[in-house]
């Protein structure tokens, strides 16, 4: 009797799992269909790098200019940048972003750990910086899907930036 109930539970759970999987698949399909606008499919032509999709160096430098302006007006993160050499920061970040988006650059500056060591950046400050970065991309008219793809490349850096 107990065995039968256990089997029934197992069957229920399996059935549930199958339904859940079906749902997830459905949404992925919906997502692919709904989001494949003509513009984005053009941008996603198979062998274009993210660097090219963003708009190469001019677009990256434009994002960085906007970012620097936003940091200058921001009271959460400005203190961390107050001592920085702006020209150096802009140059290095440009190469870093070029490198991380598969552009024709090789970043040979300090590691993220070294740069942020001793700064004791907390989660709040980090997440706030991400929002400034989003606002900078927005101001540079980077499309939402491209913004997300760039953020996806940068998100794993968090563990080498916060609480160092």
């Amino acid at each position: 009797m107990k065995r039968k109930i256990n089997n029934k539970i197992k069957a229920d759970v399996e059935m549930g799992m199958r339904k859940v999987t079906q749902y997830l698949m459905l949404v992925i399909l919906l997502g692919c269909a709904a989001c494949a606008s003509p513009e984005s499919s053009k941008n996603n032509s198979s062998n274009a790098s993210l660097y090219q999709k963003i708009g190469q160096k001019p677009a990256i430098d434009n994002i960085i200019d906007n970012l620097v302006n936003l940091i200058g007006q921001d009271n959460v993160v400005f203190s961390h940048f107050a001592q920085s050499n702006v020209t150096h920061f802009k140059e290095k970040l440009s190469i870093y972003l070029c490198n991380i988006t598969d552009g024709p650059c090789k970043y040979n500056g300090d590691t993220m750990q070294d740069i942020h060591k001793g700064m004791h950046i907390d989660t709040n400050q980090f997440n706030h910086f991400v929002e400034l970065f989003i606002a900078a991309m927005e101001a540079s008219n980077i499309s939402y899907p491209i913004q997300n793809q760039l953020l996806a490349r940068l998100a794993p850096l968090r563990e080498s930036i916060i609480k160092m």
């Binding site: 997502g31 692919c32 494949a36 499309s143 899907p145 997300n148 953020l151 996806a152 998100a155």
Partner: peptide, 15 residues
């Protein structure tokens, strides 16, 4: 939440 996962769009799942 997977950033830019589906054609550049963020995808969230929860179980």
């Amino acid at each position: 939440l997977h950033l830019g996962f589906i054609n550049g769009y963020n995808w969230l799942w929860n179980i």
